[in-house]
Every structure is written in structure tokens, then in C-alpha cells.
Design a protein around this nucleic acid. Structure first.
Lengths: 143, 143
DNA sequence: GACAAATGATACTATGATTGTATCATTATG
DNA sequence: CATAATGATACAATCATAGTATCATTTGTC
């Protein structure tokens, strides 16, 4: 079980790369070469990020994508929400129906406590947290 | 994303029911009636629990399953391991290969910290924790 | 001993989410 | 006006989870 799915992961790699590239606009081509993420999949992911107001896009020749906001104001949590929907560690179903015991369930309470902690930790993480911040502007593929 | 999958969930329900039933041996039939879990699936789950030394089984007419150990010595963690394998919130893959950046990855470190906490919380939970412990021995369907 | 009711073992199927591909339309640059 | 980029969107593959089916074996009861 993964906390972060592949598309969120790829999105993060792409955003970090754009943030660290120092360029105004980064094309799918250069992202593809740098990250090794499947090209059409990467494209789709970038378009979704654009549609959700994370990236700015530039169409036409020498077009590409750039960040709409600074790395300190882009949160991992938001990216996860975009690709993974509502976060929930509990799935209280019994044969596709809500479990009839949901109110009394002791385990549910315990999982919810854990979930709360995980939430709060994840919510702290920004793209800026994930960058290398090395003085030498070396491009590094990172998650 | 679920912390606990359906089969683990059903296994827990079954174990709790057996623990609370007060009977020596509980058949799949009675578990099925009480829990509403798909019968053949339930059977499979119980057999797996038996093979992993969680349940004792009694073959032949009026057979069934019983707990091999007391509820205080059966851990949620063990049941999860049986059905969900090794617990891991990180999946550091890039196109089916281990991500080349795995050592420097900052996100990885953060997820691992969260994982550690989740581990430690889950490891505390025993079947006994999940039981109702009401004086009146009322059978309740619970997770 | 025959039958019925239980589990043992195991192979198969269905479903759904994730992951990825393909294609055509549109836009901007040189 | 050709080319290289994104926009939109439908389609396909893969995989894990969830669930089913079947035959063999064991045991209690009449």
C-alpha cells in the first residue's frame, strides 16, 4: 500500500524539476529526458496540473510549462488531492455497503487517530521542502 | 487508499466474533450468518488464518474454528502481515525499477518517518483492544 | 457402513483502480 | 506555412484485490 501513487509521484518530480531548472518554460520533451517518466503519461499529468492551477502552460512552438506559484506555496497535500482524491485510511464497507457497525467500531477510532497524525504531517510538506537547495545549481532527478 | 484491506478486515471480524462467542468451536456457517461476509471468501480467510497458526480447526461434522491463543496475544499487526504482506508506505519505483534517486530523496525520508509512527501505533493493537468487553455477553458484529 | 456436514487445498474468475497509450484539434513561433 | 508545442479525450493494459467453484478428506450420527 502506497501513501503516494505513481501519478502524484511523477507530478512531484516534474514540479521539482521545473522549480530547479531555472528556466522560464520547460517542455514535456525536456522533462521526459530528465525524468524518464513515460512521455504521454507525463503529458497527461502536466495537463492535469495545469487544469488545477498548479502550472501555467504556454502553447505553440517553444511552449511548455512553468510554475504558477512559488515552491513554498505548493503543498504536497494539494497534489495528492488532485491525483488521489480524498485521503482516507479507513474504508468501512461490508460488501459495498457502509458497515452497520460503523459507530461502535473500536478499530475505526484507532485508525482515525492514526489518520489524523498522517494528515497533519503531510500537510506540512511543500515542494520547497523537497528541493535540494544546493548552491551549485545541479539538476538532480528527485522524487 | 486503505490501511486495512478487506480480507484483513473480515479476518478481524471473524476472530473477534469467535472470541466473543463463548463457544468452543465456531463453524463457517454461523460466522457467515453473523457477519454477512461472503461465505466462500470467509472460508478461505479462515483457512489462511489456520495455516498461519492463528486459529485451530476441527474437521468433520460439527467442526469449525477456534482461537489458538487468547485475544490479548493476537496482534492486528500479525493479521495485517498475513493478508497484506510487508507494510510499506513508500514505493520508490520509477517504471518498475528502483528509483535511482532513492538515497538522496527527501520525500522518502519524510514518508519513512510517518511510516515509523504508523507502525508503532498499529503494533500496539491486539484483538482484545477491539472487543466490546460488555458485561452482558451480547453478540455484536464489529470490525 | 452410508450419509451428511464440516474443513483442506487449490484453481479459477470478476472487478476496479492505477498506469499508460493514441489521436486529433488547436495554438504560437520562426 | 511548416513545425513544435499543448488541449482534450477516448481507449487499452496491467495488477492487486475480492470473490467463486470444486473436489478431496475428515468426522459424527443414524
Amino acid at each position: 500500500m502506497k501513501l503516494i501513487t505513481r501519478n502524484t509521484d511523477y507530478a512531484l518530480r516534474a514540479i521539482c524539476f521545473i522549480a530547479e531548472s531555472g528556466k522560464e518554460v520547460v517542455s514535456v520533451s525536456s522533462l521526459f529526458e530528465a525524468l524518464g517518466v513515460p512521455r504521454p503519461f507525463l503529458r497527461k499529468i502536466l495537463q492535469i496540473l495545469h487544469n488545477h492551477g498548479v502550472l501555467k502552460s504556454w502553447r505553440g512552438k517553444s511552449g511548455g510549462f512553468s510554475l504558477l506559484r512559488g515552491p513554498k506555496t505548493i503543498f504536497l497535500w494539494d497534489i495528492m488531492r488532485i491525483f488521489q482524491g480524498r485521503f482516507c485510511l479507513n474504508e468501512c464497507f461490508l460488501r459495498k455497503r457502509l458497515c452497520p457497525n460503523i459507530k461502535k467500531c473500536i478499530l475505526r477510532g484507532k485508525i482515525n487517530r492514526i489518520e489524523k497524525y498522517v494528515f497533519s504531517e503531510l500537510k506540512e510538506i511543500t515542494i520547497d521542502c523537497l528541493l535540494g537547495h544546493s548552491k551549485i545549481k545541479k539538476i538532480v532527478i528527485r522524487r
